[in-house]
Nucleic acid binder design. Structure first.
Lengths: 107, 107
DNA sequence: TTGACATGCAACCTTTTAGTTGCATTATAA
DNA sequence: TTATAATGCAACTAAAAGGTTGCATGTCAA
C-alpha cells in the first residue's frame, strides 16, 4: 500500500496514468512525447508505477507496451478510503463542535 | 490536489491520520506518544497535513487540538479516483486482450 | 548481416524530504 | 508572579527522489 501512495505522490506519474487511461497500451516512446523530460526519467517513473502494480508492461517485439492496471486504485478506494468515509460526518461534527466551544487564538 | 497526494505519501502521516480518525481533537503531545520520533518531526508532519487541509488545528489555551478534515479525501475519491473507476473494466479488458495476443519475452 | 530503432543499465548531480538538536515564546497553575 | 508545560522557530544532517548523460543490449527490416 505504501508503494501505491508513493507512486501517486508525483504529478508526472499521475500524468502518465492519465495518458494511459486516455489510451492504453502505449510504448515508452509514445509516453515520452510531450513529456518535458528525458526518456530515462520516464522509464524511472514507469518503474515506480510498475512497482505499485499500477502499470503492467508487455513486450511486443522490441517495443514494450504499458497497460494500466486499475485494481490497486480500486483496493485503495475500498480498503483505505472507505474507512474515513464512514467516520466522515462524525469528523465534521467534531470539528464544528470544537469551533463553537472555542474562542480561538488564531483562525 | 498535489499537496494532498504528497501528504498521503508518507506512512508516518497516514498513521497520524489513522490516530486522529480513532480519536479526534488530539494535542501535539498526545500525537507524540508511541510516535517513535521527536515532537518536532510530528510538528512537521502535521504542518504538511494542514497544508493539504487534511488536519485543522484549534487552540484551546496553551494546547493545540488537531482535528481531522474528511473533505479532501471525499473530493479525491469523487474527482480523481472516480475517473479511473469508470474505465476500470475497459482497462482490464485491454490488458487481458494484450496478454492473449502476445508471445511475451518476459512474464 | 548490418544499420537503425527501442529499451536497459549505471554513474552522477541537485533538490527535497524526514529527521534531529537547541533555544524562544506563550499560557496555565500554584 | 514565577515555575512549568505546550508549542514554535531555525539551523543542521542524512537519505531519498527526480533528473541528466553516456553507453550497452536486443530486435526488426532492408
Amino acid at each position: 500500500m505504501d508503494a501505491l501512495f508513493k507512486a501517486l505522490a508525483d504529478p508526472s506519474r499521475r500524468t502518465l496514468l492519465d495518458r494511459l487511461h486516455l489510451r492504453n497500451g502505449q510504448t515508452l516512446q509514445e509516453l515520452c512525447r510531450d513529456a518535458a523530460m528525458s526518456r530515462q526519467a520516464v522509464t524511472k517513473h514507469l518503474t515506480i508505477l510498475k512497482r505499485a502494480d499500477l502499470v503492467i508492461p508487455l513486450w511486443r517485439g522490441r517495443e514494450k507496451l504499458h497497460y494500466l492496471n486499475p485494481v490497486p486504485l480500486s483496493l485503495m478506494a475500498e480498503r483505505w478510503m472507505r474507512k474515513y468515509e464512514e467516520g466522515r460526518l462524525r469528523a465534521l461534527f467534531d470539528l464544528k463542535k470544537a469551533l463553537e466551544e472555542n474562542r480561538p487564538r488564531n483562525l
